[in-house]
Design a protein around this nucleic acid. Sequence first.
DNA 1: TCCAGTAATGAATAGCATTCATTATTCGTG
DNA 2: CACGAATAATGAATGCTATTCATTACTGGA
Lengths: 228, 228
Amino acid sequence: MSIVALTKVPRPSKEQRIDTIVESARKVFCACGFEKGSIVDIAADAGIAEGTIYRYFDGKRGLLDEVLRRHYAAIFDDIQQTLPAIEGYGNRLRYLIRRVLLAISSDRGMCGLITRDLRQFDTTQPSLAQSLNHQIGILMADEIKAGIKRGDFRSDVSPGIVCDMIGGGLELIAWSYMTNGKAIDVDKVTNAISRTVLSGIESNNATTASLASLVTRLEQTADRLDSA
Amino acid sequence: MSIVALTKVPRPSKEQRIDTIVESARKVFCACGFEKGSIVDIAADAGIAEGTIYRYFDGKRGLLDEVLRRHYAAIFDDIQQTLPAIEGYGNRLRYLIRRVLLAISSDRGMCGLITRDLRQFDTTQPSLAQSLNHQIGILMADEIKAGIKRGDFRSDVSPGIVCDMIGGGLELIAWSYMTNGKAIDVDKVTNAISRTVLSGIESNNATTASLASLVTRLEQTADRLDSA
DNA sequence: TCCAGTAATGAATAGCATTCATTATTCGTG
DNA sequence: CACGAATAATGAATGCTATTCATTACTGGA
């Protein structure tokens, strides 16, 4: 009896308990993935019984959702603080691409977890990672639409398709990072994607400039013919 | 006894049995996905016991592999027959994009199965869908590399990144097709992707060069008139 | 007709998420 | 301080998987 009394520890607050569970879940899911990461492992890591998890979370999926929610919250905070300070549609697009690449390369475990989760659709509602990733896609599309309206980008561009190409490309890069393990050169990849996309959708100034110089030469020739 | 003798049916050949199992697996996996599609369901559909499947296939994963192998074989046959007949790097790239979109839109069940499978990486070796999709990516990269070498495409383009963007974009389109169910307008999407990519990587040197030669001819004509 | 050899079976096993009756702890009130 | 309802935690039990393997059924040649 006295031993029990001596070793007895006051129960943590509801908030603390949730934090502990989510942190253990993050560790286990990042290490083993969602399917292979078991509730038993998470409970063991958190030092509690499996049943306790179900008091606080609506099953395994709900637990994953909370892990993802917390991960994305930091990224969105960052974006919300940085994006308005950047000038130019192309530059903001470039920042968004870079920010995602940074998130991918800075947390390999989370990258793997999200990369796998993005392709689930058995559940009735879409996975949180999907809708949160989609949010970022919307931010990109907004820049492209605004850029089209102001004439910075070609008007025959389809913002949705371009966003799919950027988002899909980033996903494939994340996936290949997970499988081959080679570190991502964030700046190099940001440049490669931005260059490809922008040269594709930006009204092409280089071409226009060289055409303009040709027109000048034509005009000068015409002048010579006139004066002759 | 006589009843048994009357209803007795000769055992199908090894090949027939394999075909039956693979076809049942395709049906069940396409309908329920790989995780949810159970061996019991497949065995029931094929009219055999679960254990029999393990005589012919190395577990559930091996069964999926055979389903995918058969699906991709038709696509690769088609590509091998068509690609060499197309003129121009841009046009061949465009064909490959279109062929993938066709595969996606023409078999929704298989599209869902593949889309989900592309993001697995728990297994020691990559999934078959991954390596087969990668094959198509290599075909695209080959066209881009050859186009760069011949000067059709800009030399500062990264073929790998561009392929990731095309492949990733196609994947996202497949994914959104699975979730929203709206039919894909193959030609419209092919155009949107091709336009975005090609305007981005095609060099405008050809157009500029032909204009420049025209101007030069005009200038020479003016010279002749001058000296006359 | 018989008998290796081959094929098919489905009960048994092990691993998983989830549930819930039971046990432990907390905290407001007398 | 003591009590006892309310709240929290437990872990064995449930039901669902894929996979295995001892047992049973079939086949084709001698």
